[in-house]
Design a protein around this nucleic acid. Sequence first.
DNA 1: AAAATAGTGTCTCTAAGACAATATGCG
DNA 2: CGCATATTGTCTTAGAGACACTATTTT
Lengths: 231, 231
Amino acid sequence: MNNAHQIQTSVDPVIFTVFDMKLHILLVKRNIEPYKDCWALPGGLVDEKLDQDLHSAALRKLKEKTNVTTHYLEQVETLGSASRDPRGWSVTVVYFALVTVPEENLSAAHGASEVRWEEVGKNGVAVPLAFDHEKLVKAAVERLRAKVSYTTVAAGLLAEPFTFLDLQNIHEIILNRKVEKKSLMRRYESSELLTEVNETRKEGRMRPAKLYRLKDRETVHYFVRTMEGPR
Amino acid sequence: MNNAHQIQTSVDPVIFTVFDMKLHILLVKRNIEPYKDCWALPGGLVDEKLDQDLHSAALRKLKEKTNVTTHYLEQVETLGSASRDPRGWSVTVVYFALVTVPEENLSAAHGASEVRWEEVGKNGVAVPLAFDHEKLVKAAVERLRAKVSYTTVAAGLLAEPFTFLDLQNIHEIILNRKVEKKSLMRRYESSELLTEVNETRKEGRMRPAKLYRLKDRETVHYFVRTMEGPR
DNA sequence: AAAATAGTGTCTCTAAGACAATATGCG
DNA sequence: CGCATATTGTCTTAGAGACACTATTTT
């Protein structure tokens, strides 16, 4: 049992944000082989010296390749096989992260010559991705959709303060379908996670909406039922 | 970026079964350092030569250390850190597996001098475990309980054919609380996963229960609501 | 028929879906 | 005021919890 293991271990964060009424993920263009010049997730090898654990490895990747900060980071799944990387057996731990607004200062560094927010459509992203990253993205999107339909995580994507309409839009964009205004309202009321803010945003010539903040950006409420959508 | 990674990668299956009206997991006694003579999960290093991917690595461990077969194997989570193994940075992928009846012929082989089914109580197992295995067990038990409360996975633990009471017992044992007979019945009826079998089991001096089989042991039905239990 | 467990009926309750009805701020 | 959106009311429906009632064997 003393075979020196050469299994490469990496973390691959799928970083979600919403803008222009669309769900986006962050991609970087690889500038080394294999898959040079191909778009990929902003992940990379775990560094035994730098990283205390997997979670902090994922946070380090987030910080290095972008400089977004996140209020939510969750492990999705781990893929490992002999075939997923041409260089040999490899394992990657997929995370998904939610960030509010895309920062302008995305730093192209550490093996990334370019960084870009890419729209997530019905069938994932439009560009081909390196390795099995399309599969990883698919897994992360599925997890995100599932989680959004029975928790309050989606609220973490919003910049504060936000209106109820913002909240509704976020849900509809992520789930890619309409959600019932009243149902959503009831859910968030019962969660007691929102707090009204008494500022008000102008926004044109009609009744202005109330503004809300999360009492605690770290707390996620779990509901016992999933939102099913129209029958 | 060419540091030779020495991260050990292992899989640790948490193998569940139910007998004597109690939930049990399979443990092996380690016969090598570190944690020699300590009980541990029946896991071990991924073998680049033997294993095509993580899933088959988990199946191999299952087969090697025990010879149970399972109808259900699910990845739970991956833990990796510099500190969880005294020998250095390591990553382990935790799986949970459901097996029907404990087989008598547990083989003590491959680094295990003893194999044993250990009862899972309210706070995990009674014996101390090697490494961070108690944490891994806790994660697996939580996942199992969650899953049982909104899917039909529990049925996979039963030897066929089984009665409805068997099904109810399995749920109550895993969840560690009463479940409503009628609710459970409705759920399984709506899932359309069971098929009546027209044999009948004698069993003493009262009305015999209908016997069921799963139409397909691989299919798991997901409900949109969680069973909440008594209010 | 009595015992004893198996299986069903049915009432209540929670929360979601649907969508109508009001409320409110501004021009 | 009237527009346009915000917010609330409320009816319906699905499915869980509670628990009583009926059914079916065997002795």
